[in-house]
Design a protein around this nucleic acid. Structure first.
Length: 280
DNA sequence: AACGATCCCTGTTGGC
DNA sequence: TGCCAACAGGGATCGT
């Protein structure tokens, strides 16, 4: 699934291709993809004629800054994919949005399950949108271990669920949360407030290295349906995962079989030996 | 405020 | 081989 490393990979790939380009044509092909606006044409009308001045990312939200103080916001959801292609390339199935630039590549948004969206926000709309509720970015603004510990204190919620809460920390999804917990040796069902100081320190210390490794490999491409790089290649982090999707396979540290449990309707993969369960 | 449950959506998978 | 229910999951929303 596209999480922080995947979105960051996309951002880095499209930055040199799109910054400075002007949008000449834009089309929402599936109304749900523009659901943050009253009408699909709001997205199209606001985009056409605008120039891309920069790129940004907050958590899993990709932001293309535009002139006229507008922000082009794209969320990949769970099956979203951004392609940069020559305008004459045939359209892929499940193309939900496209934009053509002046003498540059076309951006295509392909999203089979339509959990993703495309929006163009004014700065006022940005500050009242869901982006304003995001917690610190797990890559660019990771709080200190002390700060994280303070915010976990007294919380009964499973630490895995808290890591998925984008208001707590923005950018981790199901894959990277499991990877962080495995590398930190912490069981996903542990109440967040039950972690010792040194456990919070371990957790904190694994966040950026896991994200860094994911970004280095171009993210995780799970299957044909989901995330790919903008040039169509698959990300290479799948074979480096230690926990996610590895049920029954040996832990890379201790060779114990990885287990799968469900917490809050989310799969959690963990090593029962390296990640000790909570006392109950 | 904190937390859990439910819904959205559709390609894939597994059971019969 | 064909059919269909179950499954996957980020974020919004609602109930307790």
């Amino acid at each position: 699934m596209p999480e922080l490393p995947e979105v960051e990979t996309v951002r880095r790939a499209i930055h040199p291709e799109l910054v400075g380009r002007r949008v000449e044509r834009a089309r929402i092909c599936h109304a749900r993809t523009a659901r943050r606006h009253a009408r699909s044409t709001d997205v199209e009308d606001r985009l056409v004629g605008r120039r891309v001045t920069g790129t940004d990312r907050i958590g899993k939200f990709l932001i293309l800054q535009l002139d006229s103080d507008l922000a082009w916001v794209i969320h990949l959801g769970m099956s979203g994919r951004i392609r940069l292609v020559p305008p004459e390339d045939p359209q892929e199935v499940h193309t939900r949005f496209w934009a053509e630039t002046d003498s540059g590549p076309s951006l295509r948004f392909i999203d089979a399950r339509t959990f993703g969206f495309v929006a163009v926000f004014t700065s006022e709309e940005m500050s009242s949108s869901s982006l304003a509720k995001l917690g610190p970015d797990a890559w660019n603004e990771l709080p200190s271990a002390h700060d994280l510990g303070m915010r976990m204190e007294g919380r009964s919620i499973a630490v895995k669920s808290l890591l998925l809460d984008q208001r707590f920390l923005a950018g981790l999804g199901n894959i990277y949360a499991d990877e962080v917990l495995h590398r930190a040796g912490i069981h996903p069902a542990r109440p967040a407030g039950s972690l010792s100081g040194s456990e919070v320190g371990m957790l904190h210390s694994r966040v950026r290295p896991v994200l860094r490794d994911g970004i280095r490999r171009g993210g995780t491409s799970l299957d044909d349906l989901a995330y790919l790089l903008p040039d169509g290649r698959a990300g290479g982090f799948l074979e480096y995962l230690q926990a996610y999707g590895r049920e029954g396979r040996p832990c890379r540290t201790c060779h114990t079989a990885i287990r799968r449990i469900v917490i809050r309707a989310r799969s959690c993969f963990f090593c029962p030996r390296c990640q000790r369960p909570p006392f109950t």
